[in-house]
């Protein structure tokens, strides 16, 4: 025979068990990315934060794909 005190104590344990559970859901806000912030591709030793220089370099390489300009 279980004593009423023990019964109440066990009951309390069962009831409040969920209170110790940590939330497992990812904080997702609709329309907002949850990804870590990324570095800008021009913030490095080569370009030293100069976006214009980076764009010029990429543009020159992209132009190089045009063989009409490259050959003629």
């Amino acid at each position: 025979m279980i004593s009423p005190k023990l019964f109440l104590a066990l009951g309390a344990v069962v009831v409040v068990t969920a209170c110790g559970e940590k939330p497992q859901a990812v904080a997702v806000k609709p329309g907002q990315s949850a990804a870590k912030p990324d570095d800008k591709p021009y913030q490095n030793e080569q370009f030293k934060g100069d976006r214009a220089a980076w764009e010029r370099t990429l543009r020159a390489r992209a132009d190089n794909q045009n063989e009409y300009k490259r050959v003629n």
Binding site: V26, V28, S33, A34, A35
Partner: peptide, 8 residues
């Protein structure tokens, strides 16, 4: 479902 994508 976890919004792990982003556009630079």
């Amino acid at each position: 479902p976890v919004n792990c994508f982003y556009t630079t």
